[in-house]
Design a protein around this nucleic acid. Structure first.
Lengths: 337, 337
DNA sequence: ACAGTTTATGCAACTGTTTCATAAAGCCTA
DNA sequence: TAGGCTTTATGAAACAGTTGCATAAACTGT
């Protein structure tokens, strides 16, 4: 296997010049560089040791990776929008798996040439985010909130838009409004529930736990919701479904039941992409722009990387908005069926 | 700034031992390692030069990145399924942007510690795939086919399933069957069209170019399709829509027109994920399992990385299947309306 | 208890990078 | 065209981190 010294000998230059040529150091003349590179390519040279390139930005999962979800895909897309011009590369890592025994997170990032990381977390692994922030490594958590620890985060606050959503339903005349929320109580779903409670309280409507559904945030959750509503003696006339796929699947299942939406059931869903336009009718939904969150995340990260040693802590809240489409209307007097 | 020799002096060991401890070389005893790491952490040591970690697998775009699309997201998910246990990390790069002047693709990959790459390409940038394969770098192209160049690829051949789809419609009694295909003529869409033609030919039905729609592979394409069909004097009774989002959007638009599916129009869509379960009725579709393609891709790549110098060329074709759901049925005598 | 085996560590050689000195080349002015 | 000044491409040498090999220390099995 060729070494840089052999290349240098063959090209008739010093090892230093070969190193510079390979690393596109502007000090070498174009003629010299192409002479050296031709020798390099001919000899199938491969460097073994080198100055570490630290130009990666990690998209890091602290717990179970949710890679492949439309939300994560949109986040990555947004990040790459902004990374284009900066010469950074995106790397996806699973921290739980990548961390070696006795290794600190900073060491892990160092080892992989990572300059900053966007963290995706779960309720069980929030301490990892705190640990990374405490080590002083440039990091920003998405879609979670840290009120008492100095952890940077970007958070799409869905409480206000959720309240708007329920107000919208109340304004249409609905009084029995169901909420379908995740089995897992993360900050996002807690917000949506809080918005729901606030809107009800503002209209002096008592919270009814029979209208509070805890379901998996998946297609299956939406299907189950409709079946359970169908079996109720006093069915709600509207539902706020706090997960995109659940909401779309609920609409499908409602159609299968022979219900008309919004006549028999008004549905407000949640959307972090464009799913609301793929349902019939188009879905009234609380929307967050995941791509924009990704863009924002990278910009914050860049600032954090710049401010080394300053221990800057960025905590930003982005708005979510209610987009009214065709899945909500005034209730029929009798409710479904 | 501390160097490895200073750490060594402070810990009372040799630089070699420090290096081994930092790199989690199993030769050092746990006691020794934690002693050294405590000195390392105390002194905020940061290595500058190191053995290059070449444990990255790239998800590389030769042309415009389509990051964020459900298909790409599912591919990545599949790849990461298999990468978990191998200690590889996934890196997303845009080759066009990352390549430096006078640099070969192998050099680029070398520089970024990439051992193998999965290539996503466009018709205009296929030559990049050929170039990378010619350089002998471990690479595999997804969703494209190279018949005359020694380029490894994994391809989901949708011709047979497309023929099955049209046969299915013919079997139901349809005779005027539209096809909606992409404006861009890539291998995938060419296959689907070929399957369509074959099925028609087998039943002695003449190809009618008025039933051949070239539309953008997007929501908008599906919407346009339905509007154009609605305006036709002799509308088709069924349509094969070769793109997932177009197909879903077409179903929505059909509902908006007041049509019933499948009564007024049978639709066979395409699905590379789970979208067919989010339409009402569930969509009969030609399905490819993008996640499985991603898994397969990583396994092939692993083999290619293993066979250095052998110039192995893997060309695999995966089947796609027709999944019959509720969006197809026997035609009403009169066609839509 | 002793010979044989294993293994943790250091030495020294090695790889690639970078600073600094320097020779060559360019560039004004006279 | 010469002479001084600046710029710059290159090499020598120092430097950073890694690793093959030798070896001393710690086990292991009679």
């Amino acid at each position: 296997m060729a070494s840089i010294r052999e290349i240098a000998r063959e090209a008739g230059v010093s090892p230093a010049t070969v190193s510079r040529a390979i690393n596109n150091n502007p000090a070498v003349t174009p003629a010299m560089r192409s002479k050296i590179l031709s020798v390099v390519n001919r000899s199938r040279y491969m460097p073994t040791v080198s100055r570490r390139e630290t130009t990666n930005i990690a998209f890091a999962y602290t717990g179970e990776p949710s890679l492949g979800s439309p939300y994560d895909a949109a986040l990555m897309l947004g990040m790459s929008d902004r990374m284009e011009q900066c010469g950074f590369d995106l790397m996806v890592i699973d921290l739980q798996r990548a961390l070696m025994p006795h290794e600190s997170y900073s060491q892990l990032f160092m080892r992989k040439g990572i300059r900053g990381c966007v963290l995706r977390t779960t309720t069980r692994t929030r301490h990892v985010c705190e640990q990374i922030a405490a080590e002083g490594f440039a990091s920003i958590v998405l879609a979670d909130r840290f009120d008492d620890a100095p952890v940077s985060y970007i958070y799409a606050d869905s409480k206000n838009a959720s309240r708007d959503a329920v107000e919208h339903l109340l304004g249409l005349g609905h009084r029995r409004i169901a909420i379908a929320r995740n089995l897992v109580d993360d900050a996002d779903h807690a917000d949506r529930f809080a918005g729901y409670r606030e809107a009800l309280a503002a209209h002096n409507i008592e919270y009814d736990e029979r209208l509070d559904f805890r379901l998996p945030a998946s297609r299956d959750g939406g299907t189950q919701l409709i079946r359970r509503i169908a079996a109720m003696p006093q069915a709600p006339t509207a539902a706020y479904i706090t997960d995109p796929e659940s909401a779309a699947a609920a609409m499908v299942e409602a159609h299968r039941m022979g219900w008309q939406i919004p006549r028999d059931l008004s549905i407000v869903g949640f959307d972090d992409g464009e799913l609301r336009y793929l349902t019939y009718p188009h879905m009234t939904a609380v929307c967050q722009d995941a791509r924009e969150i990704g863009r924002e995340a990278f910009e914050c990260l860049q600032q954090l990387i710049g401010d080394t040693g300053k221990h800057t802590c960025i905590q930003r809240s982005l708005p979510t908005v209610l987009a009214v489409h065709g899945s909500t209307a005034i209730p029929r007097s009798g409710g479904p069926k």
